[in-house]
């Protein structure tokens, strides 16, 4: 069964390490110092921490079964990869934001730094890793990899 990143707001310590790990993982060098000192443009974090003290939690793409972003994409860039996760084909994405318009979680970001075409940016479940970077770095299991218990 496909696993997603589960979010536990009760144990989030508001450290933002998930966002940092995400940026590093999706960078050219994958080296924290190089990324934050030299890489331009620096990747956009694909998870975002929401806070309203004492509440805090990190949220990223839920990889919906019935993903509205895939269906609304104007040219097939938003698609499901071999693992079953919803990912963007960066080569073809034109940044029309149709995916943002329908994402029921509000977790797709705009990257407007490319020369010609904008780019939708979202969690891709770290295709180069077994455990996503944000989950691995989370110090308190506020993000864990787990099975989806589907709604009825």
């Amino acid at each position: 069964m496909m696993k997603i990143i589960k979010v536990n707001e009760d144990v989030c310590v508001l450290c933002h390490l998930c966002e940092i790990a995400c940026i590093v993982e999706h960078s050219e060098s994958k080296d924290i110092l190089k990324v934050f000192k030299r890489e331009k443009p620096r990747p956009i974090a694909r998870c975002a921490v929401e806070e309203d003290k004492p509440l805090s939690f990190s949220l990223m793409c839920r990889h919906c079964d019935d993903a509205p972003c895939v269906k609304a994409c104007s040219n097939g860039s938003m698609h499901r990869d071999e693992r079953g996760y919803v990912v963007v084909d960066e080569e073809t994405c034109i940044g029309c934001w149709m995916c943002i318009m329908v994402c029921p979680y509000g977790v797709i970001r705009r990257d407007e730094r490319r020369q010609k075409w904008n780019l939708s940016t979202k969690c891709n479940m770290c295709p180069d890793r077994d455990i996503p970077a944000c989950v691995e770095v989370c110090p308190n299991e506020a993000l864990v990899l787990g099975d989806v218990v589907e709604c009825t």
């Binding site: 929401e50 805090s56 949220l59 919906c64």
Partner: peptide, 22 residues
């Protein structure tokens, strides 16, 4: 400006985020 799931009640938020509420 920072509208998000944090402003929903706890149950709705957690059911949604865990994909148990359509």
């Amino acid at each position: 400006e920072d509208f998000g799931w944090k402003y929903f009640d706890r149950d709705t938020r957690n059911l949604r985020i865990s994909r148990q509420l359509k």
